[in-house]
């Protein structure tokens, strides 16, 4: 089994995400809850990492620390050598929320344009053209539709396009497909891989699905709950581009079993 001390061989490489000795405490005194305890890991520039763990392990909190939506009690997070706050103020962070967080009064195209409007950029000089993005996430023909008229899977496609419209340095995904049925979910998993490889952005996915983590990520970071600690970092040696076919292979099952063991440990015996 692989261990969590991968960051001992800290590379000097500037790109990617570096999380070092991060602690996150909510509340004060006796009521304080330690959400994350001494968490360290790296995600290579252009890499794909998955955070997995039981509920209460702080995986969503970790994602919000990278996004500068929360600030760590202790430790540091850097993205491409810079502080998350700097990246956020430059709007270089893409975030896909669990329940899509689309604005229901806006059409698909206006939802995707929202980050452009908030950053006062004209659509003409946006870094990734809106119409190209709509094509990339497969929503041609639905530009004028309202979120209410779309299926759950299509709403998440819009949310992904919106997260990518400012060509972010990192794409953070908080259980984006958690509410979808298995078939839609696997289809979107593959689409996400295609989109990720076409944009070249660094991605971090929070999920509670072992197979989703194994299918998508280069490396899966397994967290334990209360307090959230790194249980294991497991590399996924599967070739890219990944396919659903690979999910049937022995290699895939080996990865899944390693994840299962890291998550449940002795309970499996």
């Amino acid at each position: 089994m692989m261990t969590a001390d991968r960051h001992d061989t800290h590379d000097t490489h500037e790109g990617g995400i570096h999380v070092k000795d991060v602690c996150m405490r909510f509340g004060k005194g006796a009521d304080a809850v330690i959400a994350l305890d001494e968490v360290s890991f790296d995600v290579a520039d252009g890499g794909f990492a998955a955070l997995i763990g039981p509920s209460g392990c702080g995986k969503s909190t970790m994602l919000r620390l990278i996004a500068d939506l929360l600030q760590p009690t202790k430790g540091s997070v850097t993205v491409g050598g810079r502080a998350p706050s700097e990246l956020r103020s430059q709007r270089r962070i893409g975030f896909v929320f669990q329940d899509h967080a689309l604005l229901p009064w806006r059409s698909v195209v206006d939802n995707i344009r929202l980050p452009l409007q908030l950053s006062r950029q004209r659509s003409s000089d946006n870094r990734a053209g809106v119409s190209d993005l709509i094509k990339l996430v497969g929503l041609e023909g639905f530009e004028a539709a309202r979120p209410a008229e779309l299926s759950g899977g299509m709403r998440q496609r819009v949310a992904i396009a919106r997260a990518l419209v400012l060509a972010p340095e990192v794409l953070l995904l908080d259980e984006p497909f958690g509410a979808l049925d298995e078939i839609t979910r696997q289809r979107l998993n593959l689409e996400l891989l295609r989109i990720w490889s076409e944009t070249g952005t660094t991605a971090v996915l929070v999920t509670h699905s072992l197979s989703e983590a194994a299918l998508l990520a280069d490396e899966v970071i397994v967290l334990s709950a209360r307090p959230g600690r790194i249980q294991a970092c497991i590399k996924v040696p599967l070739q890219r581009p990944r396919t659903l076919e690979q999910m049937k292979t022995a290699e895939f099952h080996t990865v899944e079993n390693a994840l299962r063991e890291a998550l449940f440990g002795e309970a499996l015996q």
């Binding site: 975030f95 604005l103 929202l114 950053s119």
Partner: peptide, 29 residues
């Protein structure tokens, strides 16, 4: 305002004016 939408506007460093005009007012209808 829904928590996720509020976080989205924070993530995008929206000004208070943008937040009120583009998120809170439409949400309030």
């Amino acid at each position: 305002v829904s928590k996720d939408r509020a976080e989205l506007f924070e993530l995008l460093s929206a000004s208070r004016w943008q937040r009120v005009m583009r998120l809170q007012m439409p949400s309030a209808v």
